[in-house]
């Protein structure tokens, strides 16, 4: 690596286009949004900048606080389910025979490359009242019902448009994000620690809790962040799978910009989301700085 002073021309040549692009098409738009968040709505797309704090005041109205609280717990539950599923999966892939590893890994991450909208749409189609999940449940129900005399024919369940369907959708969409960092840390984990722990008489559970989990903490933290942050700002999944019953903060922001045309309030909500994201990242930084573990 050389100092930028040794080759100023090349340094500036390489850095200018990227710096320019991010500044003009990212920092400036965000600044516009930030200024709008202190404005007042005067027309459909017109905003007067009055430096009012009113929009942030509205954010803490009970109705929006409730939606934010719901976004938080729906994301937290989705992240937890992802973690509980992905941890054993990462282990299974790491300890699989070498010829199976790349195949299993590919199968796990391939859905991540398929369009988010298409995957959500696919899930929507199987969760419908006449979709395959209902058909499978109906088949089981009718089978059991038949054994008991067939008194209660199956009524299709409304699986969509509730918090559960949103959580299922978020897990479905973001699971690969959790598996990848976990796989990376479990793969690098020195297996002799596990052998030592088992040799010294610890049970599998004790080894998991006292040896494996602490050693793979950086991967867990990375995975939790990679799933929790996009879940918190999710808009598509709750819009398609949750409908009007499971609105998250992303949907409120969308409404402000696309139909309610209250940009200043939408801008304030967007910044609350950005601050929450930065808060989570700061927390992660604090955790990794303390544990000085392997960085993903």
């Amino acid at each position: 690596m050389e100092s930028w002073r040794d080759n100023r021309f090349v340094f500036w040549l390489l850095s200018l286009p990227g710096t320019f692009w991010i500044s003009l098409f990212f920092i400036v738009p965000l600044s516009v949004l930030w200024i709008y968040s202190f404005g007042e709505k005067t027309g459909i797309t017109d905003v007067a900048i009055t430096w009012t704090g009113q929009n942030y005041g509205r954010v803490i109205e009970p109705v929006y606080l409730q939606i934010m609280w719901k976004s938080l717990w729906v994301s937290a539950v989705s992240t937890l389910i992802c973690l509980l599923l992905a941890y054993p999966i990462a282990f299974a892939i790491c300890f699989a025979p070498d010829r199976w590893k790349p195949i299993l890994l590919l199968i796990t991450i391939l859905p991540f490359w398929i369009n988010l909208l298409i995957r959500t749409y696919a899930l929507l189609a199987v969760f419908r009242t006449n979709g395959y999940v209902n058909k499978a449940i109906g088949w089981l129900w009718n089978g059991i019902d038949w054994l008991f005399g067939g008194q209660h024919p199956f009524q299709p369940l409304e699986l969509l448009y509730n918090n559960g369907s949103v959580i299922a959708g978020l897990v479905y969409v973001y699971l690969p994000f959790m598996v990848l960092p976990l796989y990376a840390t479990v793969e690098r984990l020195d297996k002799s620690y596990l052998e030592a722990s088992l040799d010294l008489g610890a049970s599998q559970l004790r080894t998991l809790l006292s040896v494996t989990v602490p050693l793979t903490m950086p991967g867990i933290v990375s995975g939790v962040i990679l799933v929790f942050i996009p879940s918190l700002g999710a808009f598509l999944t709750p819009a398609l799978l949750g409908g009007a019953n499971a609105i998250m903060i992303g949907n409120v922001i969308e409404t402000q910009f696309k139909s309610a045309n209250d940009w200043p309030f939408g801008a304030a909500l967007s910044f609350v989301l950005i601050y929450a994201t930065f808060g989570i990242l700061a927390l992660r930084w604090a955790i990794t700085a303390r544990s000085k573990g392997v960085e993903f």
């Binding site: 738009p29 965000l30 942050i229 700002g233 992303g250 967007s270 994201t277």
Partner: peptide, 9 residues
Amino acid sequence: IPEISMGVA
């Protein structure tokens, strides 16, 4: 940055 914030900005 959350996608939706970047989108509306």
